[in-house]
């Protein structure tokens, strides 16, 4: 969250993906940096036990949302 918000503040579009167990932490961090509206993509927790293919599949499922946030359309 910290890095995504700062990259965005520096003028580079960013999309941050966070697992849904960390929603309060992510929202708190956004508020801390005055970026309450920073768009964050939440995905089902956990991801650490996914193998390469499962992780790829998860990422593909989020790709459209990432593109929308990065391009603003």
């Amino acid at each position: 969250m910290h890095d995504g918000i700062h990259v965005e503040k520096a003028g580079l579009p960013s999309a941050t993906i966070c697992t849904d167990r960390f929603i309060p932490t992510a929202k708190g961090m956004a508020k801390m940096w005055g970026a309450e509206d920073y768009p964050t993509i939440f995905t089902e927790h956990p991801i650490e036990n996914l193998d390469r293919n499962q992780l790829r599949k998860r990422a593909e499922g989020l790709a459209t949302e990432v593109v929308t946030i990065l391009t603003g359309s």
């Binding site: 960390f22 309060p24 932490t25 708190g28 961090m29 801390m32």
Partner: peptide
């Protein structure tokens, strides 16, 4: 340092 259990301390 805001290391609050459940919020920033996970």
């Amino acid at each position: 340092c805001a290391a609050i259990p459940g919020l920033y301390d996970r």
